[in-house]
Each structure stands twice: as C-alpha cells, then as structure tokens.
Design a protein around this nucleic acid. Structure first.
Lengths: 246, 246
DNA sequence: TTTAATAAGTCATCTGATGATATATGATCA
DNA sequence: TGATCATATATCATCAGATGACTTATTAAA
C-alpha cells in the first residue's frame, strides 16, 4: 500500500514508528529537527517535509520556537480544506448531509442522555442560551451552535463520535451559509428540548428531540430550495425577450 | 480556525484557493514548484512543505519527475498510520466502534437497496464470494471484506458516506486483529443476506441483514472478551500463591 | 516577590546545487 | 511505415548552510 519509494515517505513512516516505539503519547514532544535528521540519517528539510505530511494528517503539531508535538486529535475523518468544493450538486450535498445527521445525531443524543455529567449538562445549557441570545440579537450564532452539538457528542462517551463531528460541523456551516439571517425559533426550542431530555436522562426523548431539530432544518432547507427555484424561473425571462425581439 | 500565522500555512491556503479559483479538478496538474513559489512569492521549500501538508490530507499527489496533481479522492483504506494507537481501553474502543457501525451501516444498506446499479450488485456478489473463498481456505479475507462494505457504501449514493468509511474500515480491521483465525460462517451468510436484499430492492431487509451482520460481530467480540478475562483470572494465580506462602 | 532583560533552544524561510525520475523527442533499425 | 531505443527536457527529491523569528527558561533588577 504505502510502499515508500522515496525518502520522505520512508521518513514519515520512521517518524510514526518512533512515536509508537518510544510510546510518545498525545502532547508528547519529539526531538528537534536536527536530532531527527541525524537519527534517521536524512537531511533536515526531509524531516521537515515528513513532519508536514503528518501535520496534514492531524498527527503532529508544530509550535514555532517550541518544538514538534504529537497531536492525537480525532482520526479517521480527515478535515478537508477543500470541503465539498468538488461536489457540483450542492442541493444533493446538503440533503445528503442532513440525511447523515439524521442517522447519527439522534443516537448521539440518546447516548448523551446516559453519559453526560452534571457539568456537561450545565455547559450545554449555557451554550443553548448563547445561541438563543445571539440569534435574538441577529448576530452569528453558528460557532456556538456547533459547540453545543459538539458538547452533546462529547457527552455521549463514545470514543468514535468525535471523529464524526467534522462532518456534522460542516453540515451545520453549509446549512448556515444557505439560510443565514433568518431567525429560527424552532432551533432555540428544540435545543432546549434536547438539553431537557438529556438532563432527565431520557434517551428516547433526547433522540426524538434531536430528530425534531434536524427535521426542522430539513424542512427549512427544502423551502429554501423551492424559493430559489421560483426565483430562477422568474428572473431570466426579460433578457431572453430582449434578444429575441432585437 | 485555521488562522494562518506562518507562511507555510498561508501558502497551503493559497494552494487550495488556487485549485478552487482555477477550477483544477481531480487529476489536474498544478504548475511546477518554481512557478508556484514565484506565484505565491515564497521560497521553493515553503511551497514543497505546503504541498506535503496537502498530500497528507489526500488532497494532492506528487509524482516524482512528472508534477503535482490534485488527488482523485478514492475511498480507500484510511492511511492513518497511528490508528487508534493512543486509546488505551481497547475493549471500549471496539465496542464503541461496533456501536457506531450499528448506527451507520444499516442505513447505508437501506440506501444501497435503492441506489445500487446492476453493476454494483454484481460487484458485491463477486466480493461476497471472494470473502467466502478466502475464509474457507483460511486466508486473510479482511481486504475483500472491507471492499464489500465499501462497495455497499458507495452504492448508497449518499455523498457523505464515503467520508465515514475510514471509520468502518478501521472497525473491521481492528475486529479482525482480535478474532482472526476463526472461521465465521455467519459472516458469509449475512453477507449473502445483505446483497440479496439489495438486489431485491428491499431497504428494510437490507438494513435488517446489516443489523444481523453487525450483531453477530458484536456477539462474537463479547464472547472473545469473556474468554480473555477467564484466561487472565486463571493464569496469574500460581505466582501469587508462591509469594504468599514463602 | 514581581517584573524585565537576556540567553538558549527550536522552528521558519530562503538560496543554490546536485541527483533521480518521468515524459516527450527524435534517431535508428526492421 | 512502424516499432524500438537513446537522448533531452521538465520536474520533483534531497542536501547543506545561513539567517530570521518565536518560545521558554534563566537571570538580574526593582
């Protein structure tokens, strides 16, 4: 598979082995570039490029002036700066995202109802309140919205869930970019419902509330698509007439 | 978020923007290193490191002597070299993985029952047969097993599903490393059940078959854990007695 | 004790040179 | 003509060395 034909790839593998063999855990520091280059018998720039490749995979973090550290964030889903840029059909993209949210998040909410600590729940309340305040004042609430959903996900206690969050987050953001600026009372209310259910340790109610929450989003996005389509059908008419008549 | 304080990160972003702005699609070639460095006004090594970071994210591919290309993102086995190496509690890790599979994969199977083409289904059959053959001959069937599940996922038609597959794939691999060497007829049978249901365009049956499939895995892994625990309880006894009696 | 200056360690970045690899070009031969 | 092989060119791979920038620990001063 990853047959390292070139030095940089081989150095990348050596770095991984070094981490594993020396049991350098999350947050642990690696030797400096010069040492690594001597250790692996390669040039410093080769080490740097190998490190960069691992930084791209969220495995290492480099702090200027301080050193190179093991990042150990979520793995599995690579965060992709291109996002879904290559996907042409944005409409399908959004509905597919919502579909996946509908699969994953209700279960997460149910797990959170079991796993959340009192502190978790208190933080959820604050975040839900933050979203409400920001929405009411017309400010951007997306960041807090994401934080709330992430908090719920963390509280699920499932080790894999954090890996799925980038997708959920992207879904929320993409959704926001489409329907921004409209007040959404359903969001506020369903957020409350979710946190209430979690606090009551009611898994089923939590899942239901989450389904309701996402369903509201789905409904709104559908209406938004319909709006766009009617706009498209009405707008381009005049220029066509001009051309045909002239 | 990705506030680029240093040149390399900024160059990485510029590269992404370049790809987006110039509409360089999958497989497309980028200008050579020197041109890029002049275009972005940075040194060549800076460009190289930025490129390496994107290679790590599976966004670019570099072919020695040929050039730098936009990677055609294939849904292959995730190449996260560290895997879940840092998670200490392997038992919980595996059960959490199965839990997430149980959430995601039945839905995927149901979608595949709607979205799979005749060609997809034919390929599924071949893969299911491959797994069976390899299992019966005692060879490693994991790769084919993963390919089958990936094929089903692709056939779902959901654009987001491919992003989730690395997790599923890793779950399968991790599971394999734990229970390797035992013949698993349930696997063969449930694989058939799944493909049959998809062929019959029966979403519910497909989901059910997938649930059955994963439930078998879960059951087996539980029994495996119990075996380990009894072994642990029986083995260390003698030395304890020695110490106490001496 | 707190604060400010300093030093040491480390990464960031550029430049230039040389080697290795892929692809296109053109010459040779059947 | 058509296939094969050698060559040239473009491009990435890798190294070394120098200088700048940043972080952290140390030390000196208030």
């Amino acid at each position: 598979m990853d047959t390292a034909s070139n030095l940089i790839n081989r150095t990348t593998e050596k770095l991984v082995h070094y981490i594993l063999d020396n049991n350098v855990c999350a947050g642990g520091k690696l030797p400096n570039e010069l040492e690594l280059s001597r250790l692996f018998g390669v040039g410093r720039s080769t080490v740097r490029e190998a490190v960069k490749a691992l930084v791209g995979r969220n495995i290492l973090t480099v702090k200027h002036g301080a050193g190179t550290f093991v990042a150990c964030k979520q793995i599995g889903v690579t965060d992709d700066p291109l996002g879904f840029a290559f996907i042409k059909d944005k409409k399908k993209l959004i509905s597919d995202l919502i579909e996946m949210r509908m699969v994953i998040e209700p279960r997460i909410a149910a797990l959170a109802a079991t796993g959340a600590s009192a502190k978790d729940i208190a933080e959820m309340r604050v975040l839900a309140k933050d979203v409400e305040t920001l929405m009411n004042s017309g400010e951007d609430h997306m960041q807090k919205d994401i934080e709330l959903h992430t908090k719920i996900a963390q509280s699920s206690g499932n080790l894999i869930v954090p890996n799925l969050m980038p997708i959920i987050q992207r879904a929320i953001l993409l959704f926001a970019s489409t329907t921004e600026k409209k007040l959404r009372y359903e969001t506020i209310n369903t957020h409350k419902l979710i946190v209430d259910a979690i606090e009551n340790r009611d898994s089923i109610a939590a899942a239901d509330a989450m389904i309701l929450h996402i369903a509201h989003n789905r409904d709104r996005i559908r209406r938004f698509f319909i709006e766009i389509e009617t706009e498209i059908k009405e707008e381009p008419a005049p220029p066509v007439n001009q051309v045909n008549n002239g």
